[in-house]
Amino acid sequence: MIYVTGDRPLPHQIRAATFDTRWRGLDPTQVHAYLARIADELDRVRRDLTTATTEAERIRQALRQWQSRHAACHHPDQSSPNSRWPR
């Protein structure tokens, strides 16, 4: 398998990876077991990223809605960051 720079490996690509055989090569069983673990971890990380991205978008939308609802609110002293406390 040739890894092209810039392409992100997908779990199924890792699971399907093949290697050239050598006279004194690595144990294929260990290599494939390791690749399966890495593919599983990559799959988990991608799911976590999807969940985090979805949650971030939900929070952004909630913030926009809150800002829209409170845009017309009048604050007595706009120059002070916290108008309740005199400087």
Rank of each mutant, 00 (worst) to 15 (best):
D27T: 06
D20S: 03
Q30E: 13
S80L: 14
G25S: 00
D7Y: 11
W66Y: 13
S68E: 10
P86K: 15
R47S: 11
N82Y: 15
R8H: 12
Q61W: 08
P81D: 08
E57D: 10
D20C: 00
P76L: 10
P86G: 09
A52K: 04
T54Q: 02
E41V: 02
T18D: 14
P86A: 05
E57R: 06
V31T: 11
Q78F: 11
Q65M: 05
I38N: 01
D40A: 00
D48E: 11
G25C: 00
L63H: 04
W85Q: 02
L42R: 05
E57Y: 13
R84P: 00
E41C: 00
R8G: 09
A56Y: 12
H32V: 03
S83G: 02
P86L: 11
Q61H: 13
R69M: 08
H70M: 05
W85F: 08
Q13H: 04
D43Y: 12
M1I: 13
R46S: 08
P76Q: 15
R69A: 15
E55V: 13
T29D: 10
Q78S: 08
R44E: 12
T54L: 07
W23A: 01
R58E: 12
T54P: 01
Y3C: 08
I59S: 00
S80M: 08
P81I: 10
L49N: 14
F19R: 07
L26C: 04
D43T: 02
A17Q: 07
V45P: 03
T50A: 04
A33I: 05
W85M: 04
Q67M: 14
E41K: 00
E55Y: 03
A52C: 04
T50E: 15
I38L: 15
F19I: 04
P9I: 06
F19P: 04
P76D: 13
R15I: 10
R47T: 14
R47Y: 09
R44A: 15
D40C: 00
S79D: 07
T21D: 13
R64L: 08
D77M: 02
R87H: 09
V4I: 14
E41H: 02
T18V: 14
Q78M: 15
A72P: 01
W66H: 10
H12D: 09
A71H: 13
R22P: 03
R46D: 12
L35F: 02
H74L: 13
T5P: 04
S68R: 03
A36K: 03
T50G: 02
A52E: 09
R64F: 10
A71R: 12
P28E: 06
A16W: 06
R44H: 09
D7L: 03
E57G: 00
A39E: 06
R22G: 10
T29V: 11
E55C: 00
R24E: 11
D43W: 08
W85H: 06
D40V: 05
R15M: 12
R46M: 12
P86Y: 08
A17R: 10
H32N: 01
L26T: 07
T29W: 10
R8I: 05
R8K: 15
N82K: 01
D40H: 01
W23K: 05
I2M: 03
P28Y: 07
F19D: 00
E55A: 01
A56E: 14
H70W: 07
